[in-house]
Design a protein around this nucleic acid. Structure first.
Length: 453
RNA sequence: GUGGUUGUAGCUCAGUUGGUUAGAGCAUCAGAUUGUGGUUCUGAGGGUCGCGGGUUCGAAUCCCGUCUUCCACCCCA
C-alpha cells in the first residue's frame, strides 16, 4: 500500500547542495547581527491564537495557520445548531496557530520576560514562519525570517543602524539593493491634511498602486472607496510629487507640515536621512511615499528593501512599532526592527548567480577503503586529520576503487588518500588530487602537514 | 479568497483525429577495466501517464471533480 510521498503545498525539502547555500545566507546575516550587538532568542513554532489574532489586520488573520485542538475537538459543540459553520466554531476547536512573523512573538516574549530583560534590548531571531497564502514564485507557505529588533529605545539612531545592517548584509551577499523608506506619521499626516483622517489605509493602498494603474484609476478607486472629491483634489499635488528624497520632504512641509502628525513624521524622516547621509553607505535609499506596508502595528518609520535587476520583490522589510508590547500589557515600550527573507534572498542569489563556488562544509579528504587491515591502518590518521580541522571521511566498505573514486568525484572531494598493501607495508600514503589527477606517495607522518598547506 | 495555468521514468521532454506491449536524451546500476573518478562503448533496471470518477468496444489523449505547479489580483519576506 505504498503511496507516493509528498509534502504540503508551498513547503519545500532542501537537499545538501541547497543547504550549503542556505547556510551561507543564514551565517552571513547572523554574523552581521552579532557584529551590531544583537543577541539570539527563539520562540515556539506555535503560539496561542490570542497572541496572534488581530495583529496583522483582517488579511493577516485569514492567512494564519490554525492548529486543531487535540482529542475530541467537537466535544461541547452543538453540531446541529443553526450557526454550525466553520467561521463560528473556529475559535472553539482551535486555540493555537503557527506564527505568522517573528515580531509579534518577540513582543510577547518581551512582555513576558520584562523583568529579566534590560533595555534597550537588541535581539535577533532566525526561524521559520508560516502563512496560508497561495504560493507563487518567491512566495512560500513556510519560509525563514531573520529578524533584528531593538525595543525600549525611541532613538532614530536605531533606525539608522538597521539600515546599516541592511547595507552590510547585502554588501556581503553582493546583492544590489535599494532601501525604500517611509513613515506612517507622514501617511497619517497626508490623510489628516486632505481631511480624511479615518481613510488612512484606503489612501495608502491607493497611493501604492500609482505606478501600476496610473493616476486616473487611483482617483477613481479613491472615489469608489468613499473619499470626497475635495480630499482627492488636495491629494493631487502629493501624488504628482517629483524630485529626490530631500526635495520631496521640503515640498511636503508646505502641505502636511501644517498637521501635527505630519510635521512629526517629516522631522523623523529628516533626522533619519541626516544619519544615513553621514554613514557612507553603499546601497541607495530613498523616501518612497507609495510604501505603505500592510502590517497594522507600524507607527513610525517603515522600510522595504528591493533587490535590483530581478523579478522577485522585496527581500527585507521592517519598521517601528510604538505599542506592540502595549497590547500584551506593557505600554510605552517602543520597538523597531527589520526582517530579512532568507528564501527570497536565496532566489535572488540563484537568479543572479551570486553564490560563491567554495564551500567549507563539504568533505576535503577521503580515505579509500581497501579492506580490514588497511582500514585499521587509516583510522588513526583519519582521527588526526579531523583533529587538525580537516573535514575528512573514510569510505565505509571495501568497494571497488572505481566506485569509491566516483563517490569522491560526485561529492566534490578534492583529495583522496590511498593506502593499500604497499603503503601499509612502507608506512606511507598515496595522496591523489582529484582536480588535476596528480598523485604523490609520502611517508604517513607527513600527511597532516601536506594537507594543511 | 477570486480568475487562469501546469502535471507522462529520478530530471528535461516526445507521444498522430481516441487504437496493439507509452518513447527519447540525461541521470542511475552493471560490465568492458581485480589499485584509479570525470571521457568512451555495451547492456540493464525504472512508468498507479498527479489522483478519483465519467463517456467509449477502446482513454496519456475527451468530460467532471480534486491535488500540485506557475501566473495575475489581493497581500507580503
Amino acid at each position: 500500500m505504498a503511496q507516493r510521498p509528498s509534502i504540503p503545498k508551498g513547503t519545500r525539502d532542501f537537499g545538501p547542495q541547497i543547504m550549503v547555500k542556505r547556510n551561507f545566507i543564514f551565517e552571513t546575516i547572523r554574523n552581521v547581527f552579532k557584529r551590531y550587538g544583537y543577541q539570539p532568542i527563539e520562540t515556539p513554532a506555535m503560539e496561542n491564537l490570542t497572541t496572534l489574532l488581530g495583529k496583522y489586520g483582517d488579511e493577516g488573520d485569514k492567512l494564519l495557520f490554525r492548529i486543531l485542538n487535540s482529542g475530541d475537538f467537537l466535544s461541547g459543540i452543538d453540531t446541529n445548531a443553526a450557526d454550525f459553520q466553520s467561521g463560528n466554531i473556529a475559535s472553539s476547536i482551535s486555540e493555537k496557530g503557527l506564527r505568522y512573523d517573528l515580531t509579534v512573538p518577540f513582543a510577547r516574549f518581551v512582555v513576558q520576560y520584562r523583568n529579566d530583560i534590560s533595555f534597550p534590548f537588541k535581539r535577533y531571531q532566525i526561524q521559520p514562519v508560516w502563512r496560508a497564502d497561495r504560493p507563487q514564485k518567491g512566495r512560500y507557505r513556510e519560509f525563514y525570517q531573520c529578524d533584528a529588533d531593538v525595543v525600549g529605545s525611541n532613538s532614530l539612531l536605531n533606525e539608522a543602524e538597521l539600515v546599516q545592517i541592511v547595507d552590510d548584509v547585502f554588501g556581503q551577499l553582493k546583492i544590489q539593493t535599494v532601501v525604500k523608506i517611509n513613515n506612517r506619521k507622514i501617511l497619517a499626516g497626508i490623510a489628516s491634511y486632505i481631511g480624511s483622517p479615518d481613510s488612512l489605509t484606503d489612501i495608502t493602498i491607493a497611493i501604492d498602486k500609482l505606478d501600476k494603474i496610473g493616476i486616473e484609476n487611483v482617483n477613481r478607486e479613491l472615489e469608489e472607496r468613499g473619499i470626497s472629491a475635495k480630499s482627492i483634489q488636495l491629494l493631487q499635488p502629493i501624488l504628482f510629487m517629483t524630485g529626490n528624497s530631500r526635495e520631496k520632504i521640503n515640498a511636503l512641509e508646505g502641505l502636511i507640515g501644517t498637521t501635527e502628525i505630519g510635521a512629526k513624521g517629516l522631522e523623523e524622516v529628516k533626522t533619519l536621512f541626516d544619519y544615513l547621509d553621514s554613514m557612507n553607505l553603499n546601497l541607495s535609499y530613498e523616501l518612497d511615499l507609495t510604501l505603505a506596508r500592510g502590517l497594522n502595528y507600524y507607527t513610525g518609520a517603515i522600510f522595504e528593501v528591493k533587490a535590483l535587476n530581478v523579478s522577485i520583490g522585496s527581500v527585507c522589510g521592517g519598521g517601528r512599532y510604538d505599542d506592540l508590547t502595549g497590547i500584551f500589557g506593557l505600554p510605552d515600550v517602543s520597538g523597531v526592527g527589520i526582517s530579512f527573507g532568507a528564501d527570497r534572498i536565496y532566489d535572488v542569489m540563484s537568479e543572479l548567480n551570486l553564490f560563491p563556488e567554495k564551500t567549507s562544509e563539504s568533505t576535503f579528504a577521503l580515505f579509500v577503503n581497501f579492506g580490514k587491515e588497511e582500514e585499521k591502518y587509516c583510522l588513526p590518521y583519519l582521527r588526526t586529520l579531523r583533529q587538525a580541522g580537516i573535514n575528512s571521511e573514510i569510505f565505509p566498505e571495501a568497494d571497488k576503487m572505481k566506485k569509491q573514486l566516483r563517490y569522491a568525484d560526485q561529492k566534490n572531494i578534492p583529495v583522496v588518500i590511498l593506502a593499500g598493501e604497499e603503503e601499509v607495508k612502507n608506512k606511507q600514503f598515496t595522496v591523489k588530487w582529484m582536480q588535476s589527477g596528480e598523485q604523490q606517495t609520502i611517508q604517513a607522518e607527513k600527511l597532516v602537514e601536506l594537507l594543511t598547506h
